[in-house]
Amino acid sequence: MHLIRGLQDKLARISMLALALFAGLLVFLMAFGLFLRSRPILDSIPLMELLLSSSWHPLKGEFGLFPFLTGTVWVTGVSIVIAVPFSLLCAMYLAEYAPVSIREWVKPLVDLLAGIPSVVYGICGVLIIIPLIKDHLAPLFGSFSTGYSVLAGGVVLAVMVFPIIIHVCLEVFASVPYEVREASLALGATRWQTTKKVVLRKAMPGILAAFVLGLSRAFGETMAVLMVAGNVARVPRSLLDPAYPLPALIANNYGEMMSVPLYDSALLLASLLLLVVVLFFNVLSRLVLIRIERGIQ
């Protein structure tokens, strides 16, 4: 009996360790799997040409990813420019100003915003943002737009990124010791001066990490962008031009990719690129956040 229990324990230990190992290595496994599948295209076309060429004609064997890369950068850039000020202001309000009752009400709502599926964001983008840009914003600047544009993608992404930035910022603000604020207030600083010169300065690395996490989320977000960005394989020149971000390209062409040579390889290379960029951003910001967390303990 004793022997069996001991054996069970040993077996459980080994299988649990194996699973933990699997989870720990999953990132590398993903990168490796995608790399293997994108080898065929990397062998036949140099990487630099793939990244910098603008000609996307899969049937002719031309796979220039440049329009999609710039599309992603445009859309992500717009979303971050919109999301950063609003979410920082909101986080500052919730952490430093709001009475507890308001904070306890708003926080779950922000979490709920994070839980809404991206296709639902997409629907709302199509129903609200697109007509707004088409009928009101574009005529205002004397230009024509179908509404499906960089701006629409950026706005929808910004709303999706709000909860992530706010959530991380709130944790970072909470890690700033209360005594620091009291010291500043005791010196006669106003609340805003304390927030601006003491709390913000102390929390800066964490806030930047929050922005980068938001950025990487926007970078890889697929469905909502696919529904509102227009998907024209050209380098966008203005906010009202359509864009075709990388994730949208991958999701949109799954149907035909197996019937054209190298097409599947090109799309999996695009996924690998996404993975590498997002990993870089995530590792960077997580390291900063871990440092902050250690600082409290």
């Binding site: 720990g24 990132v27 993903m30 995608l34 994730p247 999996l268 996924s271 996404l274 993975l275 997002v278």
Partner: peptide
């Protein structure tokens, strides 16, 4: 080891779902 695993899972959290889809597709292939 545990801390590295936790870190790896945190990073994995940020990986876009389309990449999981693409990876799932390579497994299926």
């Amino acid at each position: 080891f545990v801390n590295l695993c936790r870190f790896s899972l945190d990073v994995l959290w940020g990986v876009p779902s389309i990449v999981f889809g693409a990876f799932g597709f390579t497994i299926m292939l």
